[in-house]
Design a protein around this nucleic acid. Structure first.
Length: 214
DNA sequence: AACGGTGTCAACCGCGGTCTC
DNA sequence: AGAGACCGCGGTTGACACCGT
C-alpha cells in the first residue's frame, strides 16, 4: 500500500514557525537542516528551514536597505567578482547573498531604464551609479577608509589588503560568528526571540525555554 | 479615492559541490 | 571508491508596500 507523502508546506513563514525554527536551531545548531526540519515539527524541507534562518532569522541578520557604504562595497566587489553574490555577501556582515542579488537587480534595472531614456551622464542618479561603478573598476577600495564610515558594522572598514585577500579567508559562517550576538540575545524582528519560550514548548523534547538534546 | 507602475524583500527551484557512510 | 544525502549558490518569481497620476 502506497502512502501519499504529505505535502511539504511552502510559502511565507508564520511567526509560530519562526519561533519553532529558532528553538530547534538553538537545540541542534545550524547544521543538519533535514534533522532540524524533522525535529522542529515544521512541515518544511530542511532547505526551506536553512533559507529562512540564513535570510531572515539569523541573529546577525541586518534588515533594511543597504547603507551607502555597503552599496559602494557591493559595486566595487561586483566589478571584481561579477555575480558571485555569496562571495560578495561574505564581505558585508549581516547581509546575505539574497540581499546583494536584490540590490543589484534593482540597481541594474534602474540603470537600464536611465540608459533607455538616453539620459546624459550628468543626470544625477546615473552619474552616481555609473561613475562609481567605473571608478571602482579601476580604483582600489582602499579609499573607503574607516574615516567615512558611519555604520560601524559596514565592511568599508575592511582594508584593501583584506579585499585583496584570498577568497575563503572569511567563510560565511565565520562572518556570522564575528558579528552575531549570542543566540540568547538576538535582534530578531517582531520579538520572535522574546516569544520563543512559548515556541520551545511546541517543539518536541523542548520544555519551555529549556531545550535539551537527548 | 482609485489605479497603475515601481521598488523591495522573501521564498522557491535547479544544479553542482561536498560530506558521510 | 562509490553512492546517496546534504549543503550552498545563483537565478527567478511572486507578494506586498509605496508613490505618482
Amino acid at each position: 500500500m502506497v502512502t501519499v507523502r504529505e505535502e511539504m508546506r511552502k510559502g511565507p513563514w508564520t511567526e509560530q514557525e519562526d519561533m519553532q525554527l529558532v528553538c530547534t536551531v538553538r537545540l541542534l545548531g545550524d547544521r543538519r537542516w533535514d534533522s532540524i526540519a524533522q525535529v522542529s515539527g515544521l512541515n518544511r524541507t530542511g532547505k526551506s528551514c536553512r533559507l529562512r534562518w540564513v535570510n531572515y532569522l539569523h541573529p546577525s541578520r541586518k534588515h533594511g536597505r543597504l547603507s551607502p557604504q555597503e552599496e559602494r562595497l557591493v559595486i566595487e566587489l561586483h566589478a571584481r567578482w561579477g555575480n558571485s553574490w555569496s562571495r560578495i555577501a561574505r564581505r558585508l556582515p549581516g547581509r546575505t547573498d539574497n540581499d546583494i542579488k536584490n540590490y543589484w537587480k534593482t540597481r541594474m534595472r534602474t540603470k537600464a531604464q536611465e540608459r533607455e531614456m538616453s539620459v546624459s551622464p550628468s543626470s544625477s542618479s546615473f552619474s552616481l551609479t555609473y561613475q562609481s561603478s567605473c571608478l571602482f573598476d579601476t580604483a582600489p577600495v582602499d579609499g573607503m577608509s574607516c574615516d567615512d564610515t558611519h555604520d560601524v558594522n559596514v565592511s568599508s572598514c575592511i582594508t584593501g589588503s583584506a579585499l585583496e585577500s584570498t577568497d575563503g579567508l572569511f567563510p560565511k559562517d565565520q562572518i556570522w560568528r564575528e558579528t552575531e550576538t549570542p543566540l540568547q540575545a538576538p535582534a530578531l524582528p517582531q520579538g520572535i526571540h522574546q516569544a520563543d519560550e512559548k515556541a520551545c514548548s511546541s517543539v518536541p523534547f523542548c520544555s519551555g525555554n529549556n531545550c535539551h538534546v537527548g
